[in-house]
Write a protein that binds this DNA or RNA. Structure first.
Lengths: 246, 246
DNA sequence: CGAACTTTTGACAAGCATCAACACGTGTGG
DNA sequence: CCACACGTGTTGATGCTTGTCAAAAGTTCG
């Protein structure tokens, strides 16, 4: 249990809330066990009772739910540092799956220890609370995205969100990004078929908004992509946090 | 400021968390002003800074966001007792609109007083926290609904959620319910056009799953409607609350 | 080097949108 | 009290967006 294990998560939480040195130390001291996970199967499953809550250390992950007919809908994607199932943990039973997009390391934190820490340290409670509220805002935007935008716009929107969040996490190389999602997964996130995703990506490439490499994507014209994606970053609440009310 | 103003909300919160007599009294004593609102325009608008948080006393409401192209997507609907914009209040700036579906009364509670109360009384904090988590679960289910189900299934699913929540609030007359949504609004909630909503309702009526009256709906066969709507009530977390961890 | 996955392409079908018109009920003002 | 406007629900004709099916080309990895 290295003390650095939870550092990516700490960094992310401190983007919104100022922690004291004690807050930081207490957070890093949380009992957590690390596990290297691959993409083969969900590591949290709908219906599972929850004893832990999980934080991504390295690699990417997504949450999803499936219909009775077997169609999968991706609900959100996650970057290193993200706490991926605080909601599941707190509600006691998972209502969706969580799975890796790429091989990576995950910290399993005792849910009870997390609860206690939050109870003792308001700054930490506040930071976690804000993260779940922003998650909620992203869910709402995704409802709009799949409900009211056409295929091309949906994809452009998703790519914009991805770029903005990768930038915030410092995971970009200039305008180029690792792209952990296959076209099938892009379809599962936008409510489209992989075939149609492929065609819409061609359309975006044809208009010189993006270009794609092997497992990478380059945003050639962010401004135009935001217009094409009807994208406004306000729903990511970049300003929410200290300075704002509880 | 009648002391009974917040009673519907108190009743709803107490469905999940057991309050002490002091909790109850303190909650009902929250400074709130009542306002009768009509359906003409949103009473909370995207971008508004938030000083209050609102609880429905009577009548129905919905939250929505609009695309740049002007299309409206309904994000959730709300029954008497629901706190409709805790998320907006806590993030400091509204990221979506809230509007009445029917004329009704709304309590505007001081956000700071609400924060203080939650800070002093863990049971109340926990109840509010759970409500926002369940809201989040509903958002996730709606993403699945608009992303991966066909028009008939989407509508049936929405009607099931409506029926279950109306039942939980005791607002049903046997299997008959007031239906506060027009067909256009049903379309905005399901990502469909009003014309297609009309046709799908005909299909559901034709199969004797529902029947509709003027501003009412009767669930003729709840079981079959749940099958048609791929509906599983687990996402509403009917069991979450006391007995479950924080 | 071969198996499995991912991306790409093409032909075709279907679901849902669009447009337009009409029916119906309700409230309102002349 | 009736005429009228308005919102809502209903119907039909038509077309576009997206899905479906199938197959080939490219890629990754043991």
């Amino acid at each position: 249990m290295t003390p650095e294990l939870l550092e990516p998560t700490l960094r992310k939480l401190e983007r919104r809330v100022r922690f004291s040195a004690e807050d930081r130390a207490a957070f890093l001291a949380l009992p957590a066990r690390e596990q290297v996970l691959d993409t083969a199967r969900p590591f949290i499953r709908e219906g599972d009772p929850s004893r832990h809550c999980c934080a991504l250390i390295t690699g990417f992950a997504y949450r999803s739910r499936s219909t009775g007919g077997g169609a999968r809908q991706i609900l959100s994607f996650h970057l290193p540092g993200d706490v991926v199932d605080l909601q599941n943990a707190l509600l006691g039973v998972a209502d969706h799956d969580v799975q890796m997009l790429t091989r990576g390391r995950v910290a399993f934190i005792s849910r009870d220890a997390m609860s206690e820490l939050a109870f003792e340290r308001p700054a930490i409670a506040r930071a976690l609370w804000l993260e779940t509220l922003v998650d909620g805002s992203i869910f709402r935007e995704w409802i709009v995205n799949v409900g009211r935008r056409n295929a091309r716009t949906r994809l452009a929107h998703l790519l914009c969100e991805f770029a903005v969040r990768m930038n915030a996490a410092g995971l970009n190389r200039d305008r180029q990004y690792d792209m952990p999602l296959t076209q099938e997964q892009l379809g599962d996130a936008t409510g489209l078929t992989p075939v149609h995703v492929n065609r819409m990506l061609q359309s975006l490439r044809g208009d010189a908004l993006i270009s794609t490499g092997r497992r990478t994507i380059t945003i050639e014209d962010l401004n135009a992509l935001q217009v094409a994606g009807d994208f406004n970053h306000a729903y990511l609440h970049p300003e929410a946090g200290d300075g704002q009310p509880l």
